[in-house]
Structures are given as structure tokens and as C-alpha cells.
């Protein structure tokens, strides 16, 4: 899901930076308005938490493993505005520390994972658990489905971004200069693997974390309500 430098052309990278600037500005404003000064470290905790979630390799049938992104989970715990900032920070740390998700692609990565995934997932969660109690089974179900929707929406965006590159940037002979696969291949691959594998990991992890929080510390699940 993390797009490294070199996959997207200059104009695409620039476009997503430009698209994310107003989102970051609105999120900062909303967070300053809603988050108490005392809760400022919570943003950093959310960012580090999302960063570390990606370290958990979850076993999947067949002997392989995969990892979750945690965008929707952080949104459920902290709210979508704070989650956007937290995931952005996690992505910047990953790009600077590991070169995972490049510097020029930060705008696109944030658009997919910190904006599309977070907001699509969070509002799906709110919709699916209308009038459901925080400790109900429907809340667990809503969290899982929302996480599945969120990560798949992000994967679809990433697929479209990849797939547009050969159309936007190619030599006179038609040789692609950045990501070499067209829309059909890129969307099928990105959506396919997230619909079939990674979406389920995200859904299971999110649902189980919500379920454990219901048992262990229900108050943490209701902070954002």
C-alpha cells in the first residue's frame, strides 16, 4: 500500500501534495478545537501505535502472513481528524526512517491511507453502528466491516494512481517511465489482493481489538463519542 518514490510521476506527486494541504489544515484546526491540551500526547501515541501495528505480522491460512494499517482503528479510537494527523505522522516517520513510502509520494500515501481510508472507514463504522451500544456485537461487526471498506477504498485509489502513470508519462515509443502497469492490471492487482487478503486482515485485527477493548477497557472505546 505504501507508494515509494519513483512509482508516481512529478505532476501526480505534486497534485496529491496540493490536494492534501487543505485536508491537513482543516484537520489541524479541528484537532486544536476538539482535543484538549492535555490530550496532545495522544496524537503522538496514535501515530506511533499505527506505525507499530504495521509491524504485527498476522498469520493467515496457508502459512503466509500480512499486516494491518490501522487507519480505521485509530479513527475509531481518536476520531477521524486526529487519525488523519496521526497516520500522516506515521507515514512521514516511515518514509524518513525506512524509505518505506517515498518523500515525493507522501502526498499520495497520505491521501490514500490518512484521508480516504480513515474517513471512508470511520463514517461506515458510524453508519453501521447507529444506536448500537459500545459493548454490543454490532459494534465489533461494524468495526470489522468499516476497516475492510476503508482499506479497500485506499487500495482502489492506489490502483488508480498506479494505473494512470503509463497513460500520463511515457516515451514517444510508448515505454512507461514510472509504474509500468495500466489501469486494468493495477486496479485488479491492488483491489484483488486487498479484497481477498489484506482487507480481511485489517477487518479481523480491527474487530478483535474492538472486542478486546470492550472486555478490558470499554471507556477507551467511548472517548470519541
Amino acid at each position: 500500500m505504501h507508494i515509494p518514490d519513483g512509482y508516481l510521476g512529478p505532476a501526480t506527486s505534486g497534485f496529491f501534495y496540493a490536494a492534501m494541504v487543505p485536508v491537513w489544515m482543516v484537520c489541524s484546526k479541528m484537532v486544536k478545537k476538539t482535543l484538549k491540551a492535555k490530550q496532545v500526547p495522544l496524537l503522538a501515541i496514535g501515530a506511533a501505535f499505527s506505525f507499530v501495528i504495521m509491524m504485527f505480522n498476522v498469520p493467515i491460512p496457508g502459512g503466509s502472513t500480512g499486516h494491518a494499517v490501522g487507519g480505521v482503528l485509530v479513527a475509531i479510537l481518536l476520531g477521524p481528524w486526529a487519525a488523519t494527523i496521526a497516520i500522516t505522522v506515521a507515514l512521514v516517520v516511515q518514509a524518513l526512517l525506512f524509505g518505506d513510502g517515498g518523500i515525493t509520494a507522501i502526498g499520495a500515501n497520505c491521501f490514500n491511507m490518512a484521508f480516504v481510508s480513515v474517513f471512508a472507514g470511520y463514517y461506515a463504522y458510524r453508519f453501521l453502528r447507529i444506536r448500537a451500544a459500545a459493548n454490543s456485537t454490532r459494534t465489533v461487526f461494524a468495526a470489522g466491516v468499516a476497516a475492510y471498506i476503508g482499506i479497500n477504498a485506499a487500495a482502489l485509489c492506489a490502483g488508480i494512481e498506479f494505473g494512470l502513470q503509463p497513460l500520463l508519462y511515457h516515451t514517444a515509443a510508448g515505454q512507461p517511465l514510472y509504474c509500468p502497469y495500466g489501469l486494468k492490471v493495477a486496479i485488479t492487482t491492488m483491489s484483488g489482493e486487498h479484497l481477498l487478503v489484506f482487507g480481511w486482515i485489517e477487518a479481523i485485527v480491527t474487530a478483535l481489538v474492538v472486542k478486546y477493548l470492550q472486555k478490558q477497557d470499554l471507556e477507551l472505546l467511548t472517548l470519541n463519542q
Binding site: K32, P41, A44, A47, A48, F49, V52, V89
Partner: peptide
């Protein structure tokens, strides 16, 4: 807000 969160996040990652 971003820079401060980034700095704190980096320290939290060590702890986590």
C-alpha cells in the same frame, strides 16, 4: 502540531 507530534511519535516508537 505536526512537528511536535512527529518528535513525540519517534520517541514512543522506541518504547512501543
Amino acid at each position: 502540531l505536526f512537528v511536535m507530534t512527529l518528535g513525540m511519535c519517534y520517541r514512543y516508537i522506541y518504547l512501543f
